[in-house]
Nucleic acid binder design. Structure first.
Lengths: 212, 212
DNA sequence: GTGAATCTCAGGGATTTTCCTGAAAGAAAA
DNA sequence: TTTTCTTTCAGGAAAATCCCTGAGATTCAC
């Protein structure tokens, strides 16, 4: 099974890679941020990608979304520190095949990868099982609160802005024009009802898109 | 070299332990919180303890302080995600022999352990080296506040900026010139080591000056 | 297919931020 | 008292943000 490991904490990433290799997985490469992960995935076409949730540039869910959009048949497992209800739901909706807590033993991740190989979805114990039902029910029913819901692209931009990246830098990272990024930023401000970057940052922190 | 590894993220802890064993260290035990770490250290008398900074019950610095107080000759290395100036200083004052960033490769920790074995202090690259001098000088001299501690006025400005107020508005609120406010804001950015408002907002949230 | 939403990009102009240097007055500490 | 720190303010220049309209492309649902 050919996989890529993505996490911005090199110490964790290297350690984990070693462990996974020992477990018989073929770790093709490591990435330390979301954009790099996408690039590597495109090049190496792995079977699966293990994604840290909180990464610079693009978080785990966004990477999942992007990989799904690109139509590559690459499954992903989100690795995270928090058993956040909302995050789990978003991860699953983005198409992630697994949601594994870092508080769990590495065997948990190994199991998740095996489940994924069988085409199944795996959630760490500690995440309520009815979570899945809840998610699915939500999915089918309706999207009422989606009036000001941010789009995937907008969340991407929001994260980068909140991280302090300049417009020019964001444009380069995402391969867009400066004007496009400005356009997104403006729309974000309108949606989030704020007239400046400070407001965007607070929103991003509040919504867990970045940590302060 | 007999060591204990303490981190509440089991996935990271197990992976790291495996790596350290491979490097020839004798990992006596693992702990998932501060209190457990103390208990284990008392029982097993390791040469060193690798401590995650953010642990339940007692964080890495507190454990270091406690171990020092108990008079056991157990050296510690603090492992953390952030290169926070204040944390580094506190860790060193508590008696830690190393401060290693998780964003660094595992070899960085290995090196830290070797330095520790030689009775030296090790800080991850990325943490300014003069940090040590600064800390020591501070240590000798006095205990009031750190160098880049914000003044009262600066905290005021920081709060208003983080709340999304425009410079002009802040100036009006505080009866100052726009130029003065700009001056304060610039100094804040220099002190907090950031080049834009997003960074200021994150600092303000982190330091509890505003709520996100 | 039609419509709605999203994503992309552009022009332009007012305003703001960012980054320098420099400097004076008052308060606090050495 | 001298020095250091804080606070105040200025000028100027480059860069970025903010705000608006408009518009082609694509995608997705109905």
């Amino acid at each position: 099974m050919r996989i890529i490991v993505a996490d911005d904490h090199t110490m964790f990433r290297h350690s984990l890679t070693m462990l996974l290799k020992r477990e018989g997985f073929d770790v093709l490469a490591e990435a330390s941020d979301g954009v790099e992960t996408i690039a590597l995935a495109l090049r190496l076409k792995p079977d699966a990608v293990v994604l840290d949730m909180n990464m610079p540039n693009l978080n785990g869910v966004e990477v999942t979304r992007e990989l799904a959009r690109l139509g590559l048949n690459i499954r992903t497992i989100i690795l995270t520190m928090f058993e956040d209800d909302v995050s789990v739901r978003e991860a699953l909706r983005a198409g992630a095949c697994g949601y594994v807590l870092k508080t769990q033993a590495p065997t948990d991740l190994v199991q998740a990868l095996h489940e994924l190989d069988q085409g199944r979805i795996y959630l760490s114990p500690g995440i309520t099982n009815n979570m899945v039902d809840v998610c699915l029910r939500r999915d089918e029913s309706s999207d009422e609160e989606s009036s000001d819901a941010l789009t995937s692209r907008e969340r991407q931009i929001l994260q980068l802005v909140a991280e302090g990246k300049a417009t020019k830098e964001i444009a380069r990272l995402l391969n867009l024009t400066v004007k496009t990024v400005e356009s997104h930023r403006s729309r974000l401000m309108r949606k989030l009802d704020t007239g400046n970057i400070a407001g965007l940052v607070r929103h991003a922190v509040r919504q867990g898109i970045i940590r302060a």
